[in-house]
Design a protein around this nucleic acid. Structure first.
Lengths: 234, 234
DNA sequence: CCCGTTTTTTAGTATTACTTCAATAGTGCA
DNA sequence: TGCACTATTGAAGTAATACTAAAAAACGGG
């Protein structure tokens, strides 16, 4: 049994895991000693030291306790799994209705940045009149915010019409689909917690750690260019 | 040493942990047997069964392996820690600039739902002219999307003016602050991965698993009502 | 340099993550 | 309904390691 370990997947040059490094940095930011953290979390000083140095991997419950003391989100130590399977990449494309793309031009504008550990993905979706996405279900959660136009959203078979300013927030495991039932385009601000752009593991390039996007500079190229690229990869 | 366990914090009536339940549901969604998952992850059938039934808590590395097979985000099993310390609640309020509240009326409209495992929090922020938030830094990440007006956002000391349609997406660990430098209100759609509403552990009520919010129905009450409640708790 | 504090190292052991195999439950078919 | 096969659970165990306590080393300030 040789699954990748947290230490292994992120081992830095000096043998310390990013989890340990992050925990130590956080502790120091808070001006706490190992003893402080140990006392507050109920563990020994030596154990905390070992975790920070990547010598010991804490159990789930131990990690939760330490993160509570350090006011950290334990989940942030888990980057979404890097998925190497072509079939799943195709599924990811389906998640945004590309299989329903005929002569309708569904376009996307990516808004969100990519940096180590980030999980948010935001897009501006221009959904053309009559466009229907395929029903889909996947892990994560998402929020739709209607900027312009109307949208019919179907969740577990139940249809609801959303108007400008309306939102829908739901676990993505719910079977969902959208339909622009009108004769005008719909503009949607969409945020989800899923790797829909195929970023995989971000490079950690500091230049991508912060993105400020300008409405005026936004590309208007259709998403299909991404689809073609995906096809080449397969 | 009695930290709360994953099973303990979310134990359902029949003794099963939500983590196990979610894993099982996901496995069944994928039409996989315990044996399939065991084979693919490199563990035994019995172990996977025990995890699903909440009898055994997997190690971090084991959880990662199982989640990889099930194409799940291991981080989603960690809800942000429920923090019982008043000082931290105050800090949470600071995170949204309440300590800067004088005679300016900064208002929030919550958009996001609350359901087990959810991590997204969305609000519509009406930032009044001249309002400045306190510089803040915390775990998580966030996205600002300007709907109306302009906003100066300061990240690590660097100021940038955002116009309608612009976005900023950054790790919340970056010291950040906002300033409505104009003479008109600014309307911001804000999404982050932090428990800013004090939801704590969601009740799991199915009625809160999906929220469709209507622009017309949205409450206009200022957030300060939440602030007062926090004060009473202290 | 000295001293107090902090962290690491060392040498364990208590705990449990994880296994194997038998028993039970579930399902489909004749 | 009975049977055969598959899927899952239960029982009993142990290898691995999470986690400890105490000593040693490192660190920082006066």
């Amino acid at each position: 049994m040789t699954p990748k370990t947290l230490a292994e997947t992120g081992e830095s040059d000096d043998g310390l895991s990013p989890m340990g490094i992050r925990l130590r940095n956080r502790r120091k930011d808070l001006k706490l000693t190992l003893q402080d953290v140990a006392d507050a979390s109920g563990f020994s000083v030596g154990f905390i030291s070992q975790i920070e140095r990547g010598i010991t991997v804490p159990s789930l419950t131990s990690l939760i306790s330490v993160c509570r003391v350090l006011k950290m989100d334990a989940g942030s130590f888990f980057t979404p799994p890097k998925n190497d399977q072509p079939i799943t990449r195709k599924q990811s494309r389906q998640a945004f209705g590309l299989t329903g793309l005929a002569d309708n031009k569904l376009t996307y504008e990516r808004l969100s940045a990519s940096f180590p550990g980030n999980i948010l993905r935001s897009t501006l979706i221009h959904e053309p009149p009559g466009f229907r996405s395929e029903p889909m279900s996947h892990e994560g959660e998402e929020i739709y915010f209607i900027l312009e136009g109307e949208l019919t959203i179907e969740l577990d078979g139940a249809r609801t019409i959303l108007n400008p300013g309306d939102t829908a927030h739901f676990p993505s495991t719910v079977v969902h689909a959208t339909w622009n039932h009108t004769t005008e385009p719909t503009l949607i601000f969409h945020t989800c917690t899923m790797d829909v752009f195929g970023d995989g593991e971000p490079s950690g390039d500091p230049n991508t750690s912060l993105v400020i996007t300008r409405a005026a500079d936004r590309r208007k190229a259709p998403k299909p260019s991404k689809s073609k690229k995906g096809t080449d990869n397969e």
